[in-house]
Amino acid sequence: MLDNHQKNIATFIHLSTFTRFIIPFGNFIGPIVLWMANKEKSEFVDNHGKQAINFQMSILLYALIMGILTVPFFIFNLISSFDFIDIDLFDGIHFNISEPSPLLYIGGGLGVLAVLGFILELVFIVIASLKARDGEPYHYPLTIAFLK
Rank of each mutant, 00 (worst) to 15 (best):
F28S: 01
P100L: 03
L113W: 08
L110Y: 04
L113I: 13
N96M: 06
N77T: 15
N54V: 05
I22K: 06
N77R: 03
P72D: 08
I59Q: 13
G30K: 09
G30C: 14
F95D: 06
P31G: 01
I53C: 04
I119P: 09
L69Y: 08
M57A: 11
I106A: 10
P102V: 01
I119C: 09
P31A: 02
E43P: 06
A63M: 07
S81T: 03
S98Q: 15
F44A: 02
A37V: 15
V45R: 04
T70A: 14
N47W: 02
L61R: 12
N54L: 10
I75C: 12
I65A: 15
F18G: 03
V45A: 10
L113D: 05
F55S: 01
F25E: 04
A37L: 15
D91Q: 14
G30V: 14
P24L: 04
M66C: 10
F90V: 12
F18H: 05
Q56G: 05
I119E: 07
L89S: 14
S81G: 02
S101H: 03
L110H: 01
D91M: 06
L89W: 03
K50F: 11
Y62E: 07
F44H: 00
K39E: 05
G107Q: 00
L89V: 13
L61H: 07
F118V: 11
I119D: 12
T70H: 09
F18V: 06
D83P: 03
F73C: 07
F28E: 04
D46V: 03
S81D: 00
M57N: 13
G108C: 03
F55G: 00
D46N: 15
D83A: 08
I32M: 13
P72Y: 11
I68H: 10
F55K: 00
E43H: 12
L78A: 11
I97A: 12
M57Q: 12
D83S: 12
D88H: 07
D91L: 08
E43S: 15
Q56L: 04
I93P: 01
T70D: 08
I75Y: 12
N27E: 10
L104T: 02
F76K: 11
V112Q: 03
F118N: 11
Y105L: 10
S98L: 14
F74R: 05
N54C: 05
A63D: 07
F18A: 09
